[in-house]
């Protein structure tokens, strides 16, 4: 079943066009990986899905992106409510300079999800458990989040993202700043999470895409070259460029 349907998306930074006519169908409760050489527009596309491009003043998005028949690329859309449903994890772990508890409680607080202290404790605990961080931090919830190791920080950011029970989580190269062990933990986590949420992950590592995703899209120079089941993209792509990229001839 399709969760997000993008049609003919064009993105401009000032006068420079960054995405050309991208159309893609993202299926529900699956992991969709976006791969491609750096600067190919995969992160730009990802940021269209929760309107993070609004933050960049000169950025302009054209085309239609629908999530459950809700038009995302519309002036009238309330981005605050959209972002409650579509969470995001960034390339560099960016916990707030607050306690671990406050980091996770941030979303539920602003969106008024928890009605009482007990409920909030419960949400924080479940989120941290789902992010596989609970056992490491349960005794020091009031320590500052920035004091954790890189991998822990990133899992804290994932816990923060899932604390508001989003329908979609966007991940922008979530493991690029982490060591292999932490990466493996995150990948395991992604596998667990996809039972409940739709995940779109941008990655520069093809092996990661192959390991975690069901569908893969290949971007090059702002265009979506090929999109299909991960197995097919990696074993038998239709497009020559995809083939060249997969086999490491460029990128």
């Amino acid at each position: 079943m399709s969760k997000i349907k993008a049609e003919n998306v064009n993105v401009y930074y000032g006068s420079k066009q960054a995405l050309f006519d991208v159309s893609i169908d993202i299926a529900e409760k699956e992991v969709t990986a976006l791969i491609g050489p750096s600067g190919c527009g995969k992160s730009t596309f990802l940021r269209c899905l929760n309107r993070m491009n609004d933050v960049i003043e000169i950025c302009r998005v054209e085309g239609s992106i629908k999530m459950d028949n809700l038009e995302l690329n519309s002036r009238k859309l309330d981005v605050v409510r959209l972002r409650e449903k579509v969470g995001m994890v960034f390339q560099k772990p960016n916990p707030f300079p607050k306690t671990i508890y406050e980091n996770v409680a941030y979303g539920p607080t602003i969106h008024g999800i928890a009605q009482s202290k007990e409920e909030m404790d419960q949400i924080v605990e479940t989120s941290l458990k789902k992010a596989a961080l609970w056992n490491e931090v349960k005794d020091r919830l009031d320590e500052i989040g920035t004091g954790l190791s890189g991998g822990q920080q990133q899992r804290l950011c994932i816990a923060r993202a899932i604390s508001v029970s989003p329908e979609v989580i966007l991940m922008d190269e979530p493991c690029s700043a982490l060591d292999p062990i932490a990466t493996a933990q995150i990948e395991e986590l992604i596998d667990d999470l996809k039972k409940e949420v739709t995940i779109v992950i941008v990655t520069h590592s093809m092996s990661q895409a192959a390991r975690v995703s069901q569908k893969t899209g290949f971007f090059h120079l702002g265009k979506l070259i090929e999109f299909g089941p991960t197995d097919k993209i990696f074993k038998n792509p239709d497009n020559q460029q995809t083939q060249d990229y997969i086999t490491g001839r460029f990128g």
Partner: peptide
Amino acid sequence: NLRDGSYAMGA
């Protein structure tokens, strides 16, 4: 990235 983190939470 701190701002992004907060905006992405729907703040």
